[in-house]
Amino acid sequence: MSRERAKRVTLAPVQEVTCGAELAVMFVEILVKGKYSYDDDTLDRIRKIYKKFPRIPVPQHLDLAEDDDMQRLSEALGAAKIRVEGCSSFLKAAIKWSIEFGAHRNGSPELHDMLADYIYSESPELDMAKVSYHFVRGKNPKKFASTLVNFMGKCYPGEDDLAIARAVLMYLSLGNLGDANVLMDDTKKQVQSREVDFPRSELMQFINYLLQTVQRDALPLFSMLRQRYKLSIDRDPIFDELLDEVAVKFYGVRRRNSMPGMFGEFFKMMSGDS
């Protein structure tokens, strides 16, 4: 097969995905215009459309010194990006519809779980912050724990504890202590059955102490922990903002402004509003 013909064969599925994604978004637009209420039947129709989005593994064991293999990899990564963008556009539109027409104020948890799973499994350039944003608005912390353990097995050194800490802090920033604890407990259990080490760092010490502290009326201890582990918290600029929101949810500390600065911009970016 010639290179030009191979390229045409590769582009055909990409065009199908693009057209399919556009039709999927149009379906959500019909739901909005028709003011269809959020219910199990409509959610099931969205789920069936979601399952039509393909999952195609990136080619492995390629010789990147060969032009043909480099071309194959480049085309595969480009196609994966298009799939993720298409599915994300569809599910983000569906989440906004669900907010407006009867689901949870953060949107349908089921739709958030779908989007988190697809972004994680299909993204050529994985952004765990986006994955976490949607998982914490879902209802499956054990699935999230499995995803984190999988990520820990292939991430760069020093990213594993950041990913776990970010996930826990995101749950807590929503006031969801229960799922934060489930996530931590299940992550610790799952690493024991896999060839992955649970990170041992000062940041993980802080997260363990924090989970115990927010169960008590202990604002001074909360503030002391933030000061004691400041260097670890400063490893990710969003952590301070998330902790400010934790203080609001668990201790009634008032913010000077509603979702200011980086925190507001971060969540706009994750939800696709910017």
Score class of each variant (00 low, 15 high):
H61T: 12
A180N: 01
N181M: 08
K52W: 07
A163H: 01
R5T: 06
G175C: 11
F27E: 08
K142M: 06
I82C: 09
D67W: 14
D68N: 15
E122D: 11
A21N: 07
K230N: 08
L203D: 01
S123R: 02
L43H: 10
P220Y: 09
L31R: 00
S201V: 05
A247Q: 02
L242G: 02
Y133E: 04
A24W: 03
F198G: 02
A24L: 06
S274Y: 07
A79S: 09
L23R: 14
L23I: 10
L43M: 14
P199Q: 09
E195T: 10
K52T: 08
S271C: 09
S98Y: 00
Y38G: 01
A93C: 14
G20N: 14
E4W: 13
F135T: 00
Y50M: 04
L62K: 02
P13T: 09
M70P: 04
L11Y: 14
Q190M: 11
S37L: 14
Q192D: 05
V32Y: 05
S2T: 09
A79P: 00
D234L: 14
R8F: 05
G107F: 00
L126T: 00
R45L: 10
V25P: 00
Q215R: 15
T18A: 11
L203N: 01
A116G: 02
R55M: 04
V32R: 12
Y133I: 03
L172C: 04
